[in-house]
């Protein structure tokens, strides 16, 4: 895509240090990254490489220790808790363990981010139904997560992530908890969203095979970007 538009994610020399008791642990050691609108990027790395830390930062769940991280052009280091929460409304999170609210139906789960964003009941109900239809769960709108399969739950989670028309989808091991057949279906859905609806995708995974389905693969190792190649 054109580099003239504001990148959805822009990281410049981003470092993140945790204190493990009294010992500082450098989880990220100066990451530089730029993700444009319409990209489909996978961030690949083994356990402990710093990819989860990077995911938390890109998801505006945490702030970098140093360096600049801009989400949709906004430097997150300058935001307070409320502003960070508002920024998260523009990010579509999909978690490895689905993280749906068990007592809410599929539709209520999809409505939740819209309700947080103050959308009115009629509008969000309509949109939730449409989104569930998009992910192929039109018949399951009134089912609770426990009544859905792993793949269906992940589809609900994707529909929920799309609820507020996010700048990008941020997926954390999206197929990590489903069987291989369902994994292919979920991946197809993600690819379709990227291709057909130009939704930017950032997918964090340790699964090399899955990572290679993206347009661009960024390998993270020991808190640094090891390679950044177009697939």
């Amino acid at each position: 895509m054109s580099s003239k538009t504001v990148p959805v994610v822009e990281a410049m020399n981003v470092k993140k240090t945790y204190m493990l008791g009294k010992v500082p642990v450098e989880a990220l050691r100066g990451v530089n990254l730029r993700v444009e609108t319409g990209d489909f990027v996978s961030i690949l790395g083994p356990s402990g490489s710093g990819k989860s830390t990077l995911l938390n930062l890109i998801g505006a769940l945490d702030k970098p220790t140093s360096g600049t991280l801009r989400i949709d052009g906004i430097d997150i280091a300058k935001l307070n808790d409320n502003q960070l929460a508002e920024l998260r409304l523009r990010i579509g999170f999909v978690f490895q363990f689905f993280n749906l609210i068990p007592r809410l139906t599929a539709r209520d789960n999809v409505e939740l981010p819209m309700s947080i964003a103050d959308m009115n009941k009629t509008e969000r109900k309509k949109r939730a139904t449409e989104l569930l239809e998009t992910v192929g769960l039109k018949e399951r709108t009134n089912h609770k997560p426990a009544e859905l399969s792993g793949g269906q739950q992940q589809r609900v989670a994707i529909a929920r992530a799309l609820a507020n028309n996010p700048k990008f989808l941020l997926l954390d091991e999206p197929t990590g908890n489903v069987d291989s057949k369902t994994a292919s279906e979920v991946l197809a859905l993600i690819q379709n969203l990227n291709k057909e609806q130009n939704v930017s995708i950032i997918m964090v995974t340790h699964d090399e095979k899955l990572a290679h389905q993206a347009k661009r693969i960024i390998k993270v190792f020991d808190g640094e970007i090891h390679s950044d190649v177009v697939n």
Partner: peptide, 16 residues
Amino acid sequence: TREIGILKALGMKSRS
């Protein structure tokens, strides 16, 4: 706790 984490990740403010 986890539910609160999800709500906050989805953009819910502390006051909500």
